[in-house]
Structure formats: structure tokens, C-alpha cells
Write a protein that binds this DNA or RNA. Structure first.
Lengths: 110, 110
DNA sequence: TTTATTTATCGCAATATTACGATAAATATT
DNA sequence: AATATTTATCGTAATATTGCGATAAATAAA
């Protein structure tokens, strides 16, 4: 117990939920917003902007990277992080599909 | 420790992350997909379709409801659940904004 | 009224997440 | 070479999530 029963769901359901889960933390929303706003993207800047310790920010960055929402490239001693459009496209297309389904639905029971 | 430092982030960041977090589980994606597909929506049907115990499904439904992604209305002994468009509109507009920012960005550093 | 049906809640165990200090690793600077 | 800067990782504590059986609560059916 305590573990999500991933095997019982489709690959698509697991992929979408992993993307949503990665976005499901205010610090990670803040990181995404920061990266969209500044086209530059040095890790140290993110740490300065967020109200969390460096180790914690690094952990959040790792999760966003694992989910395919950001990518990072080493530049000397620092790391440049920025938005990975692939992850965002996937999740956006899900919400586009949801919106379409909502407008096309016939009976609303609640 | 162990608790998210919500006070340190904006209301909008907390709201968006709460919505994403609620979607961040394959069972809850499955519930959403089911509700979009069938316009009818009796709780018992959802329990039958999902590979989880009734108590667990009930818990997932509660989380989606708390997040404002679904709503339920009592019909006799059963409950009719369906999509709450308000929650989905909020999160969709975030991803629309992200998509716009991505296409408009000038320099991509990674 | 008794019994079934349906859903929510409680209590618990297992696991995951969040946060941070300390420290390692890797490149820059002196 | 020694020191500084920057980021990742380790270890750990606190809390949250996931899942389920048992049971309560509430209406329907007999």
C-alpha cells in the first residue's frame, strides 16, 4: 500500500498524470512562470527568486526535468534551465481535448 | 518539514498547483476521461470501471471535487458525478498562456 | 419495519513528498 | 596549487498520499 497502482492504468494515463503531478506544486509553478518570463535561465537566479533553500530548488528542478517539462545545459560552473516545449505540448493537448469534449457534451446531469 | 510552504507563494500559484496536483494521479485521469466519455455519471459505474476498491475511488472522487474539477449530486441512494467546467477552464487558460509564451519567446538557451 | 443498495468515512499500514543542512563534484578564479 | 563559485546528491525528519477493509449513514425495496 501507499504506492500508486500504475500497472492498472494505460501508458497515456500514467504519462499525463506524471506531467500534471510535476506541475502540482507551487514552487514548480513559480519556476515555470519564471522561465517563461525571463528567456535567460541560470539555476542560481531561480534559487534567488524562490523562497526555498538551494537543495530544495535543485530537487524541484530535477522533478520538472524528469517529467520532460524543462531541460538544462551546463555552462561553466552554472546550469542553464529552460522550458521543454514537448512536455507542455502533451499536457496542453489533453486540456484542449477536455475543453472540446465539454462543449460537445449533450446532457449535463449535475 | 514535509509540508509545502504555501504561504510563500501567490494565491494563483497555489490554486494552479492544487488543480494540477488533483489531476496528477492515473486513477483521477481515468475518472475524468470516463466522465467526459459518458455523459451519464453514476458513482457506482466509476467504481466498476476502475481497478481500485470502492473506498479508494470514493477518496479520489472527493479530491477531484475539492479541487473543483467535478461536482456531484445525490440521486436516491446513488450519486451522480460529472465534470465541473470551472476548474478545467482555469487550468486550461494557464496552459494556453504557457503555449503563447513559448511561441513568442526570443532566445532559447538550451 | 427489516433488509438491501449505495456511497462516505474511519483507521491503519506502506510508501512518497517536501524541506533542509551538510557535503560532494566540477569548473573558475587567484 | 589553493580557493571560490555553483549545482547536485545524501541523509534525515516531518508530513502527505495511496490503498483497503470495516463500518457508518442514508435512501430504496421487500
Amino acid at each position: 500500500m501507499g504506492t500508486t497502482k500504475s500497472e492498472q492504468f494505460t501508458a497515456r494515463q500514467n504519462e499525463l498524470s506524471a506531467l500534471a503531478k510535476a506541475i502540482g506544486h507551487p514552487a514548480r509553478i513559480a519556476i515555470i512562470e519564471y522561465l517563461l518570463q525571463t528567456d535567460a535561465c541560470v539555476c542560481g537566479d531561480i534559487v534567488e527568486v524562490l523562497p526555498l533553500a538551494q537543495a530544495t530548488v535543485s530537487q524541484h528542478l530535477k522533478e520538472l526535468k524528469n517529467a520532460g517539462l524543462i531541460k538544462g545545459s551546463i555552462e561553466g560552473t552554472s546550469v542553464c534551465y529552460c522550458i521543454d516545449e514537448n512536455g507542455f505540448e502533451k499536457i496542453k493537448s489533453f486540456f484542449d481535448h477536455v475543453a472540446l469534449s465539454i462543449t460537445n457534451r449533450k446532457n449535463e446531469c449535475c
